[in-house]
Simulated scan of single mutants.
Amino acid sequence: MYSFIEGNAGSWPVHTLCAVLGLSRSAYYGWLSGSRDVNKREEEAERLVLEAFQEHRRRYGVRRLVAELKAQGVEMGAHKVRLVLRKHGLKAIQPRSFVPRTTDSRHP
C-alpha cells in the first residue's frame, strides 16, 4: 500500500491517499525514510527470543530471557519478550516447590 501512495503522490496529496487507504501519514513517511527493514528486525528479534527459550528447555521466563539476551548483546525489553512468547503461546515451565516427605514413625 505504501508503494501505491509513493507512485500516486504526484497526482494526489499524500494525506488524502493515506486517509482513503486508512493509513497514518506518519507510518507512510516512516516507511519512506527507510524503516522498511522493521519487519526483518522484528523477525530477527523474535527468532532470538525463541532460540533462547528453547535453549534453556522452556524453563526461562521473561525476566531470565531478558537477562540472557542482554548477556548475548541483544537489547530487548521485557514487554517485547512477553509479546513474542504470548504470540507463540509459550509459557515457562514452573518447577514444583520442594516439600520434604518424611515417614511418620509414630503411627499407632
Rank of each mutant, 00 (worst) to 15 (best):
M1N: 03
M1D: 04
M1A: 03
S3F: 11
F4T: 07
E6W: 05
G7C: 07
N8I: 09
A9D: 08
A9E: 13
G10Y: 09
S11T: 09
W12M: 15
W12D: 11
W12I: 13
P13A: 14
V14I: 15
V14F: 05
H15T: 12
H15S: 12
L17W: 00
L17S: 06
L17R: 01
L17I: 02
C18R: 01
C18L: 04
A19Y: 00
V20S: 00
V20H: 02
L21C: 01
G22L: 03
G22Q: 04
G22F: 04
L23D: 00
S24K: 04
S24D: 11
S24W: 00
S24Q: 12
R25W: 11
R25I: 13
R25Q: 14
S26G: 10
S26M: 12
A27Q: 12
A27V: 07
Y28W: 10
Y29K: 01
Y29V: 10
Y29H: 13
S33D: 15
S33V: 07
G34D: 14
G34M: 12
S35C: 08
N39L: 10
K40L: 09
E42Y: 08
E42N: 11
E42C: 04
E43R: 12
E44R: 08
A45I: 05
E46C: 07
R47D: 12
L48A: 15
V49T: 01
L50K: 06
L50H: 03
L50R: 05
E51Q: 13
A52Y: 01
A52P: 05
Q54G: 01
H56A: 13
H56N: 15
H56W: 01
H56S: 15
H56D: 15
H56V: 01
R57P: 00
R57M: 06
R58L: 07
R59H: 08
Y60M: 12
Y60R: 12
G61D: 02
V62N: 06
V62T: 13
V62S: 02
R63S: 02
R64W: 02
R64E: 09
R64K: 15
L65D: 02
L65A: 06
L65E: 01
L65N: 01
V66H: 03
L69W: 03
K70F: 00
A71G: 09
E75G: 05
M76N: 03
M76T: 09
M76H: 01
M76I: 15
G77F: 01
G77S: 11
A78L: 03
A78Q: 13
H79N: 09
K80S: 14
V81S: 00
V81Q: 04
R82L: 15
R82G: 04
V84R: 01
V84K: 03
V84F: 10
R86V: 06
K87Q: 13
K87I: 05
H88R: 09
G89F: 08
G89R: 01
G89D: 08
K91H: 10
K91W: 10
A92E: 05
Q94N: 04
P95G: 06
P95Y: 11
F98K: 11
F98Q: 11
F98D: 11
V99Y: 11
P100D: 11
R101M: 09
T103F: 04
D104M: 08
S105N: 02
R106M: 09
P108H: 08
P108Y: 06
P108L: 13
